[in-house]
Write a protein that binds this DNA or RNA. Sequence first.
DNA 1: GGGCGATTTTGCGTGGCACGCATATTTGCG
DNA 2: CGCAAATATGCGTGCCACGCAAAATCGCCC
Lengths: 206, 206
Amino acid sequence: MTGLRERKKAETRAALGWAAIHLTAERGYDNVRVEDIAEAVGVSPRTFNNYFSSKAEAIASRHLDRSLRTAAALRERPADEPLWAALTQAALEQFTRGPEVEAMPSPGHAQWVAGVRTMLAEPALQGERLRAAAIAEAELAAAVAERTGTDLATDMYPRLVAAAASAAVAVAMQHYLDSADPPAPIERLITDAFTQVAAGLPAPSH
Amino acid sequence: MTGLRERKKAETRAALGWAAIHLTAERGYDNVRVEDIAEAVGVSPRTFNNYFSSKAEAIASRHLDRSLRTAAALRERPADEPLWAALTQAALEQFTRGPEVEAMPSPGHAQWVAGVRTMLAEPALQGERLRAAAIAEAELAAAVAERTGTDLATDMYPRLVAAAASAAVAVAMQHYLDSADPPAPIERLITDAFTQVAAGLPAPSH
DNA sequence: GGGCGATTTTGCGTGGCACGCATATTTGCG
DNA sequence: CGCAAATATGCGTGCCACGCAAAATCGCCC
């Protein structure tokens, strides 16, 4: 029942988010005014603030939407799959299909990658990005509670799992962006991170 | 070598942070203007922005300073102590001593607790708070790398450990604040959280 | 297929914020 | 004691978030 109305709304939201990202990546965060973003999408500046309460929130919105999909993906995994396997797969799905893979493009557009990196360094954005992650994490915790039969209100367990899983993805992504030279495939990094976390992160035996 | 100069600077910083917190807790976030905070400390509004680039940052600054102390505490732990034991103790220290325990006061001042809760619910603050946590987490990761002889540049391990440990503390604190009815002692919650994480968060055997 | 009610967009106005720049004041140190 | 460096302040500017009310839009039901 996705009415045309809500669909158009979602489209505008996405368009504003992408416009904010593109403009910021190519010009720098504070050389972009809200007015510019609105204009790029063909909408009034006031309308921008009907969708987002700040420039930063607009940029982080794409990240938020993707993260939320991880929680949804977990709910789709077969119920008899072991928890950590299901989590790993749910996370992997977000990076191996869908048109949004564009968001973190493969190397080649050095310009673009550099722009994104500069963007992510912006303090104002980091906060909003982390907030998006926190929102998605709450959703993930709910899904974990459901799957494991634990209780969000009384058990720390589901939140701990969600937090650890989110951290695994975040660290893998950071690692991927940092060591862009010969980039290890993101799938392997994510798998590795989950494996280590699920093993309790024992001190390396050297 | 703490010159009088830097000491006074640190004092002003802390005073501004506390003033921001107190005013916000009792009046609500957007009934406090930067001007009010500056006035409460006896400093010009412009000076406020020499210390912090936003109201939110000022409020989060106390949280940041405390979190940074966890990393410092880890470096102080005996080198032969197992990693996870050391992490647990380093985290616990921040809640069992020092004058900053005031920050999250024991029940009794319902007014104050309610104010703090409302404050933490403010979106603008959550971002800044999480950013502070991220900064501290980076510091913690460095300490972990040092202790375990791993390499921040090539291994995900230290960052994963730091992220997991931060998450453990954060979840414990959240649990503590949420279930204020008969509050389980924060020390037990933290210990529990660390134990579960260090065990790899196995699915509960039901 | 046409009008109606709900939703969405827009313009305008307001209060406040972040910060650059120039100036005055303080402070440590020789 | 006096100077150089650090810090505090005043002022001005551009931008932003958002409340409010008017106008446009659109799905839907008769």
